[in-house]
């Protein structure tokens, strides 16, 4: 699967842009947190698309955002 680029994203209807990002992010997040992947992806999709694109290219930034999201999620559920 070819990498998702800003121009590919911009070519998609606004409503589908988060969907496209989610489809790319979910498998990466699932590898880190199999049970919480859906919720974490849902949380991260609230972030700006440009930052989400960056996270797709940068495992480090993805990991750090995922850990942040897990902490928020656990605090929320507590």
């Amino acid at each position: 699967q070819e990498p998702l680029t800003a121009s590919m994203l911009a070519a998609a209807p606004l409503k589908e842009q988060k969907q496209l990002l989610g489809e790319r992010l979910y498998p990466l997040i699932q590898a880190l947190h199999p049970t919480l992947a859906g919720k974490i992806t849902g949380m991260l999709l609230e972030i700006d698309n440009s930052e989400l694109l960056h996270m797709l290219e940068s495992p480090e930034s993805l990991h750090s955002k995922v850990e942040e999201a897990v902490a928020v999620l656990q605090a929320h559920q507590a």
Binding site: K18, G38, G42, L45, E46, H76
Partner: peptide
């Protein structure tokens, strides 16, 4: 407008409704 269901869960292959439900 309870936040019990927050965050919305992303399911691959299912159209994302996201924040509409919050």
């Amino acid at each position: 407008n309870s936040n019990i269901n927050w965050p919305p869960e992303f399911c691959p292959g299912v159209p994302w409704k996201g924040l509409q439900n919050i």
